[in-house]
């Protein structure tokens, strides 16, 4: 799930985070004047360059005294105004808001933890809550967003491995076909016998030095 993952190795693979621009945390304020009330909510908005959209796989960040995190995303849609959708609601980062635990940990949020689909996202909004009055300032730092792995894992597989069962099952095999099970057994044993010969090759050599049946007299010696 989430936890103290190092920033250098999210997921253990070397991959590049998506380029994105995050605004500094804006604290929600009630009232104005010299001493506004702070209800303990802050908002961070994040957008992708040139109004682009991205598929999210993982969100990595370092906490700084935020107790609860909600995430909302805005997804690209063909028609109508873009809507904000909540994909994470009040996710607890600090088990007890008044104490230090979890206050500066690294967290990873994965796609499968999201409440909704996070493909083709144009903007992400992080809503931070800290109900404890002990911490005046709270935010999340080192925010990085990773796309799904570009390389499809299937690309590495040889074709025969991904098709252990042939895709085209012959609808009705020819009636006179010999029993494939038996044929397979015999052919595999023949293959094994050939492997035996390959595996138990002779390491020694006769040591022939002749070319077209003629020896150089200097190469001859008793063994």
């Amino acid at each position: 799930m989430s936890g103290a993952a190092g920033p250098g190795a999210p997921g253990g693979t070397a991959r590049a985070p998506l380029p994105c621009a995050a605004r500094a945390a804006a604290a929600l304020q009630l009232g104005g004047g010299a001493d506004p009330a702070r209800p303990g909510v802050a908002v961070i908005d994040l957008r992708f360059p040139r109004g682009g959209a991205a598929d999210l796989q993982e969100i990595v960040f370092r906490n700084f005294y935020t107790a609860f995190l909600s995430v909302r995303v805005q997804r690209a849609s063909a028609e109508g105004p873009r809507k904000w959708v909540t994909c994470l609601r009040d996710y607890r980062l600090m088990p007890s808001p008044h104490t230090e635990e979890g206050s500066q940990d690294y967290f990873s949020l994965f796609r499968h933890q999201m409440l909704c689909d996070v493909d083709q996202v144009t903007a992400v909004r992080f809503i931070l809550r800290q109900p404890s009055p002990v911490w005046l300032h709270f935010t999340i730092e080192e925010l990085q967003i990773y796309p799904p792995s570009q390389k499809s894992p299937q690309k590495d597989f040889p074709s025969w491995l991904s098709q252990l069962t042939p895709p085209e099952q012959p609808a009705n095999l020819h009636g006179e076909l010999p029993d494939p099970e038996k044929v397979s057994t015999e052919v595999q044993q023949m293959w094994v016998l050939t492997e035996v010969i390959r595996a138990r090759q002779a390491a020694a050599r006769i040591g022939r030095f002749d070319v077209d049946g003629c020896y150089d007299i200097n190469l001859l010696s008793y063994t």
Binding site: L164, E168, P170, L173, L177, V183, S184, Q188
Partner: peptide, 20 residues
Amino acid sequence: LEAGSKLGPDCLALAMDRAL
């Protein structure tokens, strides 16, 4: 593994069927 897959009953049946 590769040889096992190629010489499995499925692949052989397909090959024979195609040949026929």
